[in-house]
Nucleic acid binder design. Sequence first.
DNA 1: GTCCTATCGTCAATAGGGTTGTCTATTCCT
DNA 2: AGGAATAGACAACCCTATTGACGATAGGAC
Lengths: 153, 153
Amino acid sequence: MAARPGFELPLLLLAGFREIVDETHRRLAALGHPEARPAHGFAMQAIGVGATATDVGRRLGVSKQAAAKTIERLVELGYVTQEPDPADARRKIATPTEHGRDMLRRSAALFDDIQAEWAEAIGVAHLDRLHADLARLVGDRAFQIDGLSGLTD
Amino acid sequence: MAARPGFELPLLLLAGFREIVDETHRRLAALGHPEARPAHGFAMQAIGVGATATDVGRRLGVSKQAAAKTIERLVELGYVTQEPDPADARRKIATPTEHGRDMLRRSAALFDDIQAEWAEAIGVAHLDRLHADLARLVGDRAFQIDGLSGLTD
DNA sequence: GTCCTATCGTCAATAGGGTTGTCTATTCCT
DNA sequence: AGGAATAGACAACCCTATTGACGATAGGAC
């Protein structure tokens, strides 16, 4: 057994992740979003059509304080706006701006493009199997995305 | 086309990486290395039998300053020692201690164990193909491992 | 032998993403 | 009315990383 050293697998998985994410952001930078970084995309996804810092923190598996800082940054970059919830004075709702929605649309398209390129490189059948096998191995843990720091592009 | 949204793939890859690394470190903690964190393991690998901060930085794709800080941390944790190079007064060589070598041996074994568990879960043929496909997609980029922060276990 | 240049380690400032703990304001349920 | 739960803000801190500058050393050209 152990035909291959076991440490290669995590390295390959990480490299795959970084390859997709870095390439997406390289292209995104050329499409009017040079400041967008991976954490921003994930946070935008977590915001959806509108969410509070606490919501975002819960969805991303980080503290509400960390989420609040990220939202603050997104406001600075013009990706979201924040307004008090008229129905609950404790809450502040972050909502994507048109610029933010543009970023989200474009990154979704880029992810699709890169997936298509991977399908071309190894064949659709291989990619489908890779996707299915990974989904089986990690289950729903794939969508609890914390630990994204350092991916600073 | 685009039967699946493209953003799932990077998430699955990241989740796979985290799954392996986190599980390794959970088990490592129970084997006398509660302080070991992912970045340390990678740095230890980069040190090998002995290396300078600059070497480590180059191998890991980070600045020499960042590498020096990590080595400093490894010294604090008792994983390496540092001595001046007798042949070159500019250089300081970091060398794994017995504790450090123990950590490396154990984590290598744990990576192998987890790889075996994955093979059991999806079948050896599937795992081999996953490994081969990823290797083909990312090439040698797998072993330029930066961006490890946040993986703080 | 003596310079010029490249390299090593280090110091300092900065950035970004994360944490815990504490606090006030507000809401909601009893 | 009053107590528990919740949202956001503030502070202090950690970790990993960055760039820029600097003194000390090594080593090749001459």
